[in-house]
Amino acid sequence: MKIVRTPFLMLLLLASISCQPKNKSGKQEVAQKESDPHLETKLISGQLQKYETAYFASGCFWCVEAIFESVKGVKEVYSGYSGGSEKNPTYEQVSYGRTHHAEAVEVYYDPEVISFTQLVQVFFGSHDPTTLNRQGPDRGAQYRSIAFYKNDREKKIIQDYIDKLETENIYGNRPIVTEVEPFEKFYKAEEYHQDYEKRNPNNSYIRNVSIPRLNRFKKNFESYLKEDAH
Rank of each mutant, 00 (worst) to 15 (best):
D195H: 14
V30S: 13
S210R: 04
P89T: 11
A229Y: 01
D110Y: 08
V177D: 07
Y161M: 03
K27S: 14
T117A: 11
H100C: 10
Q32L: 15
Q93G: 03
R139F: 10
S115H: 00
C60Q: 03
S58E: 09
G83P: 01
N88W: 07
F221S: 07
P129N: 02
E184A: 12
Y51M: 08
E197Y: 14
G172Q: 08
A189H: 00
E190T: 07
E227S: 13
D152L: 10
P7M: 04
G172L: 03
D110W: 01
A147Q: 00
D128G: 09
L43V: 06
E154W: 00
S126G: 03
I3C: 04
S45Q: 15
F56Q: 04
A31M: 08
Q118F: 01
F217I: 08
V4L: 14
S126F: 03
Q32A: 12
S115L: 03
V107W: 06
F124M: 05
K33S: 13
E154D: 07
P37A: 08
F186S: 05
A104Y: 06
V94M: 05
N169Y: 10
N173I: 05
E154C: 01
P37W: 10
V4R: 12
K156D: 11
F116H: 08
V209T: 04
S58V: 05
Q47D: 15
R98W: 11
G172Y: 01
H230M: 14
S35H: 09
Y161V: 05
F186L: 08
I17C: 02
S204M: 11
N133Q: 06
I206M: 10
H230E: 14
Q47Y: 11
T6R: 15
G26K: 09
A147E: 03
Y192G: 02
I162Y: 06
S204E: 13
K72A: 00
E166R: 03
